[in-house]
């Protein structure tokens, strides 16, 4: 069956850095705006089915280790691009849907397009 197109909002409804959660055919779907690009995910955490898309948006901390100097360097990056599930804090990269702590885990995503100011999600 071909995907259906769902007009979920107008571009002006989701400012940069904001999100909108809508019901599409009985499913909670979140649309995020990052730098004018839209990303749509199911609001359903891979961990224990929590409402992950309602969580806080932050950046995240990474580290590198220099084997020669034995120095660890901490970095904080991707501010606004990391979604933290409100139930248990599982982190997801909003641009890719990838879970930061478990390789191979990712939020199911839906194609999003913009047509004449309308945001359209397909599934």
């Amino acid at each position: 069956m071909a995907d259906e197109e769902h007009v979920v909002a107008r571009e002006s409804d989701i400012d940069d850095g904001e999100r909108l959660i809508v019901d599409i055919k009985g499913r909670d779907v979140a649309i995020f705006n990052i730098d004018g690009e839209y990303h749509a995910y199911i609001n359903w955490c891979a961990h224990q089915s929590g409402p992950c898309c309602e969580g806080r948006r932050t950046g995240t901390t990474d580290a590198s280790f220099d084997r020669e100097t034995l120095e660890q360097t901490l970095t904080y990056s991707r501010e606004g691009e990391i979604l933290n599930c409100p139930w248990h804090g599982w982190e997801y990269d909003i641009k890719t849907g990838e879970c930061l702590s478990r390789s191979g885990v990712r939020l199911p995503s839906f194609p999003v397009q913009v047509d004449e100011g309308k945001i359209i999600v397909s599934f």
Binding site: R56, T58, T61, N84, P86, H88, G89, E91
Partner: peptide, 9 residues
């Protein structure tokens, strides 16, 4: 809170 990532409600 993991630097504000999670918050107990």
């Amino acid at each position: 809170s993991v630097s504000g990532k999670i918050e107990e409600d």
